[in-house]
């Protein structure tokens, strides 16, 4: 496991060319240490989603540098050939909605990633069960996603994001559909998991309920990030 979090330096993303070009990201600088959970907030159109897609190796930035763990993955161009494998092995994703695969049970939803990475089914399921136990949903291991509550589904989604022990997890508004109590529970879990697995977690959010829980926050405005100290309140 890589233990150096993620660092982004001078990241830029331009859509289009010539007169119609739009600079979605102008100068993004971030650094998230292993075990840390930071917030990324900003108004609509500020570039949050574009940044998330760049960090998730889904779209290619225009310039800048990204260092994931101890590996520079982008330096004005991708330095990694297989971005799909990069996403699979080194980046965890947690979405606004859980987006669990409806035809796989809870265990296989979590175990799918290591299986895709070539691990044996038994080992993958064992690792999935460890995470489900850590997230207190092990009793629903055989259930289908449709049989879970919203909170349980989100915990399973967190387990899926963690299962390959990635150095960074990108959480895209993970508490949006949840009430305050459950939203804070999710943030508590993310903090616990970040510490336990030494993972850097970036939480993109609009959610006023959870913003005070971050110790560090990155604001993004017109494609530029500004760092500020958060309140770091206790959860619930």
């Amino acid at each position: 496991m890589i233990k150096k979090g993620i660092r982004i330096e001078g990241l830029r993303k331009r859509y289009g060319k010539g007169d119609t070009a739009v600079d979605a990201l102008k100068n993004v600088n971030m650094e998230v240490a292993p075990g840390e959970v930071v917030g990324l907030i900003g108004p609509s159109g500020s570039g949050k989603t574009t940044l998330l897609k760049c960090l998730g190796a889904v779209i290619e930035p225009t310039a800048g540098r990204m260092i994931l763990g101890d590996e520079t993955i982008y330096d004005d161009k991708w330095l990694v050939r297989d971005l799909r494998a990069l996403r699979r092995d080194k980046i965890g994703f947690i979405f606004q909605a859980p987006y669990l695969i409806p035809f796989l049970d809870v265990t296989d939803n979590v175990a799918l990633l290591p299986m895709l990475a070539g691990q044996r089914n038994g080992e993958s399921r064992q690792r999935a069960m460890e995470l489900l136990t850590a997230l207190d949903v092990q009793h629903r291991a055989q259930a289908m996603p449709s049989q879970l509550s919203g909170g349980e589904q989100q915990r399973v989604a967190i387990a899926r994001g963690l299962v390959n022990r990635p150095p960074v997890i990108l959480a895209d508004e993970p508490t949006a559909p949840l009430d305050t109590e459950r939203a804070l529970a999710v943030i508590r879990i993310l903090n616990d998991m970040a510490k336990r697995y030494e993972t850097a977690i970036i939480v993109v959010t609009h959610d006023e309920k959870i913003i005070p829980t971050f110790k560090r926050i990155y604001h993004i405005r017109d494609g530029v990030t500004y760092e500020e100290a958060g309140e770091g309140r206790e959860f619930g």
Binding site: G56, V58, R84, A85, L86, R87, R88, D89, F93, F95, Y99, I101, P102, L112, L113, L116, A117, R160
Partner: peptide
């Protein structure tokens, strides 16, 4: 949506 998620988390096109 499931296919997008599968692709995002690294599932091969072949799969």
């Amino acid at each position: 949506r499931e296919i997008a998620v599968l692709k995002l988390i690294g599932t091969r096109n072949r799969t």
